[in-house]
Design a binder for these strands. Structure first.
Lengths: 199, 199
DNA sequence: TAGCATACGGAGGCAGCCTCCGATTCGCAA
DNA sequence: TTGCGAATCGGAGGCTGCCTCCGTATGCTA
């Protein structure tokens, strides 16, 4: 146990240069992921941000941690979108529209769908909390639609999350450019989702 | 132009040691892919087969080429299964059953679904001919089911191939062990396919 | 402005890819 | 059988990218 100098004094705040470097890494990483996909070379990101590779690893110990920081806001947005849609008068439409957002988001970077799927499977992943929150929000949306009798009762939120991401993955693997993959994902998702409604 | 000694004499057949090495590499690769997935280290495969890495690359210039050789028979089997099913009296059931085979096959090795999708997208891939044949066979099965009015007319064979593989991919990404991913793929595929029938 | 905790940077070791070319082996022809 | 040329082999070596470790530099507080 390292004795703290004062138990309730918060640890000294981050040094100014450290905060600056962290921010530059973040914005640089965002660009690099967009350009190379989620397996963009980390050394390239450090170089572009004008810091050493050691600095990158100190701020973000794993690629997943960096990705989590880059995605944080977007995942939060998906979460609150789901919460808002709980008030939508058409439960099934609300659910399916939200799933479209999820799938579209997952086509943003090449490799992202895989990372998002890992985020729910592996509880130790830095993405796990954010992905878990998204999944939970989706579950409420689903439950409401199922209670209304509009969606098959045997589908789980995990199924839907998985399907949305897998469709996004397929779109990104199939399309040459990233601009094509969005529409393709939407099209495949529509086909997939048709089977979920009750008849 | 290198002048051939005799225009219609086939070039001298492969030397005995070369043929032997090629075969050993093939069976070794099969095991390695099963163990490590499609990105198994090639040097490991060469080592296990008891040949130098140079020999591996001479026989199979790319990883895709090796994969193609390993998959050849299985893909051919999927093709002929489709042809046989053309005689099945229930067109939609025949199609959906075949898609289940396709998806199950794609869960065989980790990373395989991605390779199979690439095989139809990239015409230069060594997998392209085999994958193309599978896709064509599936298209006939689909056309028959659509003519019978049992499957939505706006679905393409490429859609179905893509969906089957993406579901297989999701199953392999989601499951810890490979033995779980088969059933999960089947379950997700069922959900997906429900929407394809006409009502 | 001195001293210390914090943060930086990049050298270096590792794994895997792929190429290239000197060494080896096969198999035909005499 | 033997000799020879063509076919084949093997792995060293150069490259990219990952990640760790530790000597050095710098911001912050007193």
């Amino acid at each position: 146990m390292t004795p703290s100098p004062a138990p309730d004094t918060p640890p000294r705040p981050q040094r100014a240069d450290a905060r600056r470097n962290g921010e530059r890494l973040l914005t640089t990483a965002r660009d690099a992921f967009a350009e190379y996909g989620t397996d963009a070379p980390l050394e390239e990101i450090a170089r572009r941000a004008g810091v050493g590779i050691g600095t990158l690893y100190r701020h973000f110990p794993t690629r997943q941690a960096l990705l989590q920081a880059v995605l944080h806001d977007r995942l939060e947005a998906l979460h609150s979108e789901a919460v808002l849609l709980l008030d939508n008068p058409a439960p099934a439409d609300a659910l399916l529209g939200w799933l479209r957002s999820v799938a579209l988001h997952a086509t943003r970077y090449r490799g992202l769908a895989a990372a998002l799927l890992l985020g729910v499977r592996d509880e130790d992943s830095p993405l796990s909390p954010s992905c878990g929150a998204v999944l939970t929000a989706g579950a409420e949306l689903l439950q409401r639609a199922q209670r209304a009798g509009q969606i098959r009762p045997d589908v789980t939120a995990a199924d839907l999350y998985t399907l949305a991401n897998s469709v996004a993955w397929a779109a990104e693997e199939t399309s040459t450019s990233r601009s094509e993959s969005g529409p393709l994902a939407a099209r495949l998702l529509t086909l997939t989702m048709e089977g979920l409604r009750t008849h």
